Amino acid sequence: MFKRHKIFNLFYVVILLFNVYALAVDNQLLRMIAMPLIGMSLILYLLIKTRMEQMFHKLIFIGLVLSMGGDIQLLFTDEPEFYFFTALVLTLASYGLYGAAYFLDFKRDFTKTKRVGNILLLVMLIAIVGSFFMSRNTLGDFIYPAVAYFFMLSVMVVLSGYRYQRVNRLSFKLILTGSFSFAISDLSIGYYHFVDPEKVMMISYLLTYLIAQYLVIMGSIERRVI
């Protein structure tokens, strides 16, 4: 799979390193240049490779556009109650669209195994409840948006598991891993904003977010319905 996308992979690694460097040195100008490159490169590659021929790809595309908007909003955190909330709403909407795309695969055959999705449902329930109890005293006015956000995140992850045996194994693995990477990314940035603003948590957020978007887009490109 990686050989088929070698040129784009190299380009994306450069974008990843550019973003991590900009964050590590706290260069806001570099961050404002580097961050939009994530969404722009993935959007363009998705368009070229899929031509938006199926509803699945259209939903992923719109979700990616909204997610890119959320990325840009996160650059402006001097007024967190406005910018962070806006980014949260945009990302929430993108997860909803990703989940809707995964549901298209799931509903193709409700009779096939739901084992993987059911296991993920339990895992996400434990993880989200645990994270909520860790940060509930620091969420403040964000408590209800946070509950809605992590609920949608969980739905997306679980639906990625319900694609099992409904699409080819490569697409399933890529998108499932990408969904888990989103969960790690969101827990990292949530910890940074509401528990302890350690720089390592922002770097963890950025790395896992870049990986997550890459895996979901590649999983969408490589998707074959069984």
Rank of each mutant, 00 (worst) to 15 (best):
I189E: 00
F172C: 05
S185G: 11
D196C: 06
V195A: 08
S185E: 02
G178N: 07
S185N: 05
F172M: 05
Q165L: 12
T177Y: 13
A183N: 03
P197Q: 11
L159R: 01
S181Y: 12
S171F: 02
L170G: 00
Y164S: 11
P197I: 09
S181D: 07
G190E: 01
I184P: 04
S188P: 01
F172D: 12
G161R: 04
L170M: 11
F182R: 04
S171R: 00
S185C: 14
S160M: 08
S188K: 01
Y162R: 02
L176P: 01
V195N: 12
P197H: 09
K173T: 07
S181T: 14
R169N: 12
S188G: 09
I175L: 08
R163L: 10
F194D: 00
L174G: 02
R166K: 14
V167Y: 03
S188W: 00
V195Q: 12
Y191M: 10
D196H: 13
L159A: 04
R166A: 06
E198W: 03
L159Y: 05
I175G: 03
N168Y: 10
S188A: 15
S160L: 06
L187I: 14
Q165C: 06
R169F: 12
S179A: 15
D196L: 13
L174T: 04
S171Y: 03
N168I: 05
H193P: 00
E198Q: 15
K173V: 09
T177P: 00
F194P: 06
G161D: 11
F180Q: 07
G161I: 11
R169D: 12
D186M: 04
Y191K: 11
N168H: 09
G190N: 06
S160A: 15
L159Q: 08
F172L: 13
R166Q: 10
F172Y: 15
Y192G: 04
K173I: 14
G161K: 02
L176H: 03
R163M: 15
T177W: 12
S181A: 15
S179C: 07
Y164M: 08
F182G: 04
Y192P: 01
Y191G: 05
S179N: 07
R163T: 14
D196G: 02
R163N: 14
G178R: 01
S185R: 00
T177I: 10
F182A: 06
V167M: 11
T177Q: 06
V167R: 03
F172W: 07
T177G: 10
S171I: 01
P197D: 09
K173Q: 13
Q165R: 14
P197Y: 11
Y164V: 08
G190M: 03
F194R: 09
I184R: 03
A183P: 06
E198K: 15
K173S: 12
V167N: 08
Y191Q: 10
S160P: 10
L170H: 01
